[in-house]
Design a protein around this nucleic acid. Structure first.
Lengths: 336, 336
DNA sequence: TAAAAAGTCGCAAACGTTTACAGTCGCCGT
DNA sequence: ACGGCGACTGTAAACGTTTGCGACTTTTTA
């Protein structure tokens, strides 16, 4: 369990441990013969540099704190995957924390990460409240928000153009012939507010009546969408398409529709948002709006690296384009 | 960006920094009045203890390295969720690494984790080869394998009783009246070998003919299952049920069956393994064998903590019971 | 009342690195 | 032959903690 240190190999090599350190770090001021000898020796002795000691003197841990509400979530785990890969490719490791559903835990974990001396924090916020929640810490360490649009708050973030996503989605529905489109979702966060706005904008341009079915006091999940949709379907269906603000909600809607024998897309077209992996499953094949998760993740770590390594001050808002993924839950309406 | 240290609050309090340290750590040898004064002061000054400095002297980082082939995977992200929650509840943080598909990267990340001085490693192996692959490091740091059955190798692990899973699954199929059950899957790892064995054992006891459809040179994914199933279905279907060794494969099979208008469960019953979240989706509703992912994760960190904190030597094999999740892809056969 | 015990607190070493600075050595130019 | 320069390597400080030990003060005990 006792690991070999610089001092050990220095003794074995008959040099000072400063020399060994220099040999490993590729310092120019060292003889190429001794360098090779030392490197070979390190290899033989199984020396690996102790990062915590190194961090101590370098005042840099090469650590990025990643906080997500729940890694057990297709959207976030995909983000996390690309973030970790990209971070490690640039010499950083990821310290992972679930922030859970409440703001208190979210604050706790970023405080914890600060104590760990992470070089930066990448955070997928629980909601719009996160900004205020952790503001006391965001000036102590480079921080970038991921996937939540903060509008013009003085804080770096990368997010999809949520407004544009719903905009192109409802336009697509319009082109398919739909004139009565129901927007299904709430507006608890800026991101979701923007999604609603994209829908509203498209409706205005297209001369469509805006129709909302909100669910202000619940979070986005399949079961929630399902319960809500059962409510919805108990009333007359005087629309031909539903735009669900979330794939999870859309899938819940599908479930309710199936039970009531409401044919999708025969009777009702359905479109979701996010393009989580589940949407591409057989029998689901949900038409949706893709958030470019991979790009979002790598750009977020790029942005964070820039802050860390170049000390870049200020904030930047990176907005990525969403794209329409046509699958099989939307159908063209026959014009009369 | 400069954080406040022990020395800073010591100066402010007019005591030595050793006293501050003791006040925070709850040392008994300190006046309760000064303790309160110092704690209050720390709070005001926003002091947080520097964990890397602390780790340095304590020779303990309170860090657990978690390596998974890909966090972007429902099974592993669920494991990771519970592992992180449980670890943090006990004062540990998680350093996350994706090991990708190849052994080289897997070895690289555990080496990296060693350099980070993690107290222990929790690893979801890529395959059975992982044991050999990282054996050089597993005696340098407490390690427990998660989800892969290593049989009687001298290495701690926690896994589901895979053999029993397929055993109860085929027995269930038998009770439903099925007499011709095809086992769909490969045996590239011990875990999958055990699954095949459970099926074989049940067949023997029940007097059933063992029928295999193997796919030795592909990994388990929906698309793979789909391609393979298309092959499979091009030949006569002289069985009434399929046991897929994996939910992903089962879903791929569903897709192929749908395309060919092979009714599930009308014509063919189908059962999977793992109970990944996707299986519970509407329109899928796959009958499957649940691996107790939560228990597996928390028991794995418990086991690791025991090794770390109590220096427990030796190895323990923790086998957890899988359970049958009845959904809607299996139907009872009318006895003739 | 004096000595021992208990209660507080400071000093300093240690953890394993990196790096500025100083030191050693040989070699070259004059 | 000697100063000086360049190439290389060693010395030591620093990073922020924890903790054994010693020192000082106060309380207890005989």
């Amino acid at each position: 369990m006792k690991s070999v240190t610089l001092k050990d190999v220095a003794k074995a090599a008959g040099v000072s441990y400063a020399t060994v350190s220099r040999a490993l770090s590729g310092s120019p001021q060292i003889g190429s013969d001794t360098r090779e000898r030392i490197i070979k020796l390190c290899d033989e002795m199984g020396y690996t540099t102790n990062y915590v000691a190194r961090s101590m003197v370098m005042k840099k841990t090469d650590l990025i704190g990643l906080v997500v509400p729940s890694i057990d979530n297709q959207f976030m785990s995909e983000l996390a995957y690309y973030a970790e890969m990209s971070a490690r490719a640039h010499g950083y490791n990821i310290m992972l924390c679930n922030s859970g559903p409440d703001l208190k835990q979210e604050k706790t974990v970023v405080k914890l990460l600060l104590g760990r001396q992470v070089d930066g924090i990448l955070i997928v916020p629980q909601s719009s409240k996160t900004y205020e929640n952790i503001r006391a810490y965001t000036d102590q360490v480079p921080t970038v928000f991921l996937s939540e649009n903060l509008r013009d708050q003085p804080q770096s973030y990368v997010a999809a153009d949520n407004s544009r996503g719903t905009y192109i989605g409802t336009k697509y529905l319009y082109e398919l012939g739909h004139r009565d489109i129901l927007y299904f979702g709430r507006r608890h966060s800026t991101t979701h507010q923007l999604r609603a706005e994209g829908y509203m904008k498209a409706c205005q341009e297209l001369g469509l009546k805006q129709r909302f079915f909100n669910s202000e006091f619940s979070h986005s999940s399949i079961n929630n969408g399902y319960q809500l949709a059962k409510d919805l379907f108990s009333k007359p269906i005087d629309y031909s398409a539903i735009f669900a603000s979330t794939d999870s909600n859309a899938i819940g809607i599908m479930k309710a529709a199936d039970e009531l024998h409401i044919d999708i897309p025969g009777r009702l077209s359905l479109i979701g948002f996010d393009n989580i992996p589940s949407t591409s499953l057989p029998r689901l094949e949900l038409t949706t709006i893709e958030q470019p998760k991979r790009d979002m993740a790598v750009q977020a770590v790029d942005m964070l690296r820039d802050k860390i390594e170049n000390g870049t001050q200020g904030y930047v808002h990176q907005i990525l384009m969403p794209t329409l993924i046509k699958r099989s839950t939307c159908r063209a309406l026959n014009k009369i």
